[in-house]
């Protein structure tokens, strides 16, 4: 696999010979990927290619699945996240995640956001209130919900719920945000809003997004990684990957030969 010259900058996250197994199934094979700071990196590929598996490794959500095993390294801020001494709590505060289906807690809108700061031990009410407001503003949700902060989050529309989940992730001030097919269950209008939001967020955050929507990848990402059957087939700047793919598989996938 070849790197674009432009891709060789200081990466925020870097995987080194990463392999991952579900029991006997070899789900990720020798992945070497750089995630660049303040950029959006999209992971694309047909379903089952390992892109969701990969993204769940960056904050070690993969630990929740029993009988799995990872080999190789994921370097983040100078350390390998698989090290025994890695503090998972700290890691996950630095690397936030937004899931495929909006999953707000069955609490009020306010409580959903304040949860993050509160579990960090923050007791200052004013501080928390400001953090909530700020997070909701960043997620472009403040104007929609400022009058009903104390009503249940479950009463919101799907798109709003997903933006709430983004705001919830922002409230703990992560450096990286992982999006695992964030628009998979949303309508086109909500999807457009989320995409807009991602473009806005990249000014301050490093973003990694899994999507099986190629148009979405081309709209929001700076870098694209194409995966197939657990292999990282091609990685490069999005424009380049979409216009002149180097690998035949990538070209076939992008032109819809399989998917």
């Amino acid at each position: 696999m070849e790197m674009d010259p432009a891709a060789i900058t200081t990466p925020k996250i870097k995987t080194e010979n990463l392999n991952f197994f579900y029991g006997g199934f070899h789900a990720l094979k020798n992945i070497n990927l750089n995630v660049h700071e303040m950029q959006v990196t999209a992971l694309i590929g047909p379903s089952g290619c390992g892109k969701s598996t990969l993204i769940r490794l960056f904050n070690r959500m993969s630990d929740m699945t029993p009988k799995t095993r990872a080999e190789g390294k994921i370097m983040f801020e100078g350390g390998n996240i698989f090290d025994a001494k890695t503090d998972l709590v700290k890691l996950r505060r630095n690397i936030g995640m937004v899931f495929q289906k909006p999953n707000p807690f069955p609490k009020t809108i306010f409580q959903n956001i304040s949860y993050g700061p509160e579990i960090q031990g923050c007791k200052d009410k004013d501080f928390i209130y400001h953090r909530v407001e700020e997070s909701l503003k960043k997620a472009a949700l403040w104007d929609d919900v400022k009058t009903r902060l104390h009503s249940s989050a479950l009463g919101m529309s799907g798109g709003q719920q997903q933006r709430l989940c983004i705001a919830r992730a922002l409230a703990v001030e992560p450096k990286v945000i992982l999006f695992d097919e964030p628009c998979a269950s949303l309508d086109p209008i909500s999807t457009a809003k989320i995409e807009e939001l991602i473009l806005e967020l990249k000014k301050n955050y490093t973003i990694l997004i899994v999507t099986h929507n190629m148009q979405q990848a081309s709209r929001v990402s700076d870098y694209t990684a194409f995966m197939y059957l657990g292999n990282l087939i091609e990685f490069g700047q999005t424009d380049r990957v979409f216009t002149v793919p180097k690998d035949k598989k990538t070209e076939e996938y992008l032109s819809g030969v399989f998917g």
Binding site: N59, R92, F99, N103, F105, Y115, I119
Partner: peptide, 22 residues
């Protein structure tokens, strides 16, 4: 739902915080 648990852990809550609060 597992998704509640995931959401809480992904924000950096500890296991006990997740159990107690969610």
């Amino acid at each position: 739902p597992v998704s509640f648990k995931e959401a809480s852990l992904a924000i950096g809550a500890t296991k006990w915080q997740t159990i107690k609060r969610i």
